[in-house]
Simulated scan of single mutants.
Amino acid sequence: MADHPSTSGGETLNTGETAWKDRAALHPADGADGVFDGGKALQRGTFAEMIRHLANMPAETRRNYAIEKAGDRRYSADEAMALASHPDFPAQDPG
């Protein structure tokens, strides 16, 4: 989950770390992927920022959104909330 492929067409590296500073975007959960998917982002920032943003929403609203992380995959609101309780999750931006 943490690293981009090491070479063109390569596999992702498995460092066991979560890349909280990777670029990410908030999307509607029911949005379809496609060529123009990147233009449908509702908000952009780091992966940690997008998780914090979701965490500040009411639970019933949160399920309507997903996070797409650069070089990785789409995370549901439930997955994002599980990551928010991870021991190394940055509670706030380092500044």
Results as ranks from 00 to 15, higher is better:
residue 37 D to Q: 10
residue 17 E to Y: 12
residue 84 A to M: 08
residue 23 R to F: 03
residue 89 F to H: 10
residue 56 N to T: 01
residue 72 D to G: 07
residue 24 A to V: 01
residue 57 M to Q: 05
residue 86 H to N: 12
residue 35 V to K: 12
residue 31 G to N: 10
residue 41 A to H: 07
residue 16 G to C: 09
residue 76 S to P: 09
residue 44 R to L: 08
residue 36 F to T: 07
residue 79 E to G: 04
residue 53 H to V: 02
residue 71 G to N: 15
residue 89 F to W: 14
residue 81 M to S: 05
residue 66 A to G: 08
residue 26 L to F: 05
residue 85 S to L: 03
residue 24 A to E: 06
residue 29 A to C: 06
residue 55 A to W: 11
residue 76 S to T: 15
residue 75 Y to C: 02
residue 59 A to H: 10
residue 27 H to P: 00
residue 30 D to G: 09
residue 17 E to D: 13
residue 54 L to H: 03
residue 33 D to M: 12
residue 40 K to G: 02
residue 52 R to H: 01
residue 64 N to I: 02
residue 32 A to I: 01
residue 45 G to L: 03
residue 87 P to W: 07
residue 57 M to N: 01
residue 70 A to K: 14
residue 22 D to N: 15
residue 82 A to L: 14
residue 45 G to R: 09
residue 35 V to Q: 06
residue 83 L to C: 08
residue 58 P to M: 04
residue 42 L to S: 02
residue 17 E to N: 05
residue 33 D to N: 07
residue 42 L to T: 05
residue 87 P to L: 04
residue 52 R to S: 01
residue 46 T to H: 03
residue 49 E to Q: 12
residue 65 Y to M: 10
residue 77 A to D: 13
residue 28 P to K: 13
residue 20 W to T: 00
residue 72 D to M: 08
residue 19 A to K: 15
residue 20 W to A: 01
residue 34 G to L: 07
residue 67 I to S: 01
residue 40 K to Q: 14
residue 39 G to M: 08
residue 46 T to F: 02
residue 67 I to D: 02
residue 50 M to Y: 07
residue 37 D to C: 04
residue 79 E to R: 08
residue 17 E to L: 10
residue 65 Y to C: 07
residue 27 H to D: 02
residue 77 A to L: 09
residue 25 A to R: 05
residue 27 H to Q: 06
residue 74 R to G: 00
residue 24 A to T: 10
residue 85 S to N: 15
residue 89 F to Y: 15
residue 51 I to S: 01
residue 56 N to D: 12
residue 78 D to P: 00
residue 27 H to L: 05
residue 79 E to Q: 13
residue 45 G to H: 04
residue 59 A to E: 10
residue 68 E to Y: 08
residue 31 G to S: 11
residue 62 R to C: 02
residue 31 G to M: 15
residue 76 S to W: 11
residue 58 P to W: 10
residue 52 R to W: 03
residue 41 A to N: 08
residue 37 D to T: 07
residue 32 A to S: 11
residue 62 R to W: 06
residue 40 K to R: 12
residue 45 G to S: 02
residue 44 R to V: 05
residue 18 T to Y: 12
residue 80 A to C: 14
residue 42 L to K: 09
residue 63 R to S: 12
residue 20 W to M: 06
residue 81 M to K: 13
residue 69 K to P: 00
residue 48 A to N: 07
residue 23 R to M: 00
residue 68 E to W: 12
residue 17 E to S: 04
residue 68 E to H: 10
residue 17 E to P: 00
residue 72 D to V: 06
residue 30 D to T: 08
residue 72 D to Y: 15
